[in-house]
Simulated assay, not measured.
Amino acid sequence: MQQRAVETRQLILEAAAEVFDEGGYKAARVSEIMQRAGITQGALYFHFASKLELARTVMLSQRDSVVLPPGPDGLQRLIDTTLLLARELQTNKLLRAGVRLAVEQEEIGFHDDAPYLEWAEVFRDQLTAAASRGQLRSGVEVERLAVLLVGCYTGVQHFSKLSSRRADLPDRIADLWHYMLLGIAPPQVAAEMTVNPDAALAAAG
């Protein structure tokens, strides 16, 4: 029974992600989520007390829906992570819905910077490793750079969503790195980095 409950909860999250991704929070109907998940109203409300709670859970599940690329911690793994995320945002409905709901928070009626802080922590860990390996310029502040990178990424992916439905997102993130590397990494380190969406995807398997 416990395993069945876990599977049902995941079905609900995936169905909700599809609906939230397609039309946003306000247009989403609980009845549509139930239909796609193939469950009853009682089953849905057993796991989630309200549409708002369901949306918040989807938003906070975005990090769990992505497996980070392999490789030693440091600047290259950070680059590969952001490029993999760009690919995932093209196909991963749970990630896309979580990102959309995070952007729509004020309109929805809750305020939670947890998803942004979670990605900032992921980026910070790689930047900390990069600093210890001498891959960052002197004076680069890891904490501030991690937060800045989350902000830049959020803006770039949103622009890409509006302009091309994210078809060009991997290339836009590659552009971001081509220019950012000039400011944060010594020239010899920047020259060693591979900024290639296809290579990052292949490395992730």
Rank of each mutant, 00 (worst) to 15 (best):
H158F: 07
A174P: 10
A204M: 08
D198Q: 15
G98W: 01
L13A: 10
T194P: 06
G151A: 12
A120E: 10
Q76E: 14
L54C: 02
A202W: 14
A204P: 07
T154P: 13
Q76L: 12
V140H: 02
V142M: 11
I79M: 11
L181F: 09
I184S: 01
A191N: 07
H111P: 04
L95N: 08
V66I: 14
E192K: 14
M1P: 07
D198G: 15
L149R: 14
L44R: 08
E53Y: 00
A174D: 12
T82A: 10
T194G: 06
R165P: 10
A167Y: 05
G109K: 00
R166H: 04
A102I: 06
D80R: 11
E107N: 05
Y153M: 13
M34N: 05
Q188H: 13
V140A: 10
E18Q: 15
V67N: 07
V142E: 06
L89W: 13
G183P: 04
Y116Q: 06
L149P: 07
R9H: 08
H178Y: 14
P70D: 01
E18A: 07
L75T: 13
L68R: 12
H47M: 07
L136Q: 05
A16M: 05
N196S: 11
A43C: 12
E118S: 11
A202D: 13
Q157F: 15
P170K: 08
V122G: 05
G38N: 04
L162N: 07
E107K: 04
L54P: 00
G155D: 01
R137D: 05
P170W: 12
F159I: 03
L89E: 09
S132N: 12
D113R: 07
T81K: 15
G205W: 13
E32W: 04
H178S: 11
V103W: 09
P186I: 10
P197W: 14
D64E: 13
A102V: 03
M1S: 13
E192Q: 15
E22C: 04
E141V: 15
T81H: 14
A27F: 01
E106A: 04
L201R: 15
V150W: 09
S132Q: 06
D112F: 02
G71W: 06
A102P: 03
K51N: 01
V6P: 03
A174T: 13
M1I: 06
F110T: 02
E32S: 08
S138Y: 02
S31H: 00
L181Q: 05
P69K: 04
Y45C: 10
S160L: 05
S164R: 07
A130W: 01
E107Y: 00
R4L: 07
M59S: 06
G23W: 00
D113M: 02
A200V: 09
L60W: 01
D175A: 04
Q3S: 13
